[in-house]
């Protein structure tokens, strides 16, 4: 059972305090978008063995959403960061690279 530190309230929360929200940094496609874009926004999800960016909500806690970078194979947590961002912070990306030199990088 995972522990993730909520960047909003600072609690090291165990998984039962949290609610998962799937892949992070999805771009919303609304009216006027192509079928392909909408399809990918709605249904296409990354499922890597390795570095993954996820949405979590501290549901039994401060109630805030946050994002986490995690290795799906080892469950290593590289870091958590606020949801109000469109891509992982540069220092986090650098840290991930140091831990996973083979990682191809974010997008």
């Amino acid at each position: 059972m995972l522990i993730l530190e909520c960047p909003c309230c600072g609690v090291k929360a165990e998984e039962t305090e949290l609610a998962p929200g799937g892949e992070a940094h999805l771009k919303r496609f609304g009216p006027g978008s192509s079928d392909a874009d909408f399809d990918s926004y709605m249904f296409a999800r990354a499922n890597p063995k390795g570095v993954h960016f996820e949405r979590w909500r501290h549901a039994n806690g401060c109630g805030k959403w946050f994002l986490a970078a995690r290795c799906t194979a080892t469950l290593e947590v590289f870091g958590t960061y606020p949801a109000q961002t469109t891509e992982p912070p540069a220092e986090l990306q650098a840290y991930i690279k140091s831990r996973r030199p083979e990682w191809e990088g974010y997008k």
Partner: peptide, 13 residues
């Protein structure tokens, strides 16, 4: 309520 907060916190912050 969670749905509202999701959009407010994660999309239209």
């Amino acid at each position: 309520h969670g749905w509202m907060e999701d959009w407010l916190q994660c999309e239209w912050w």
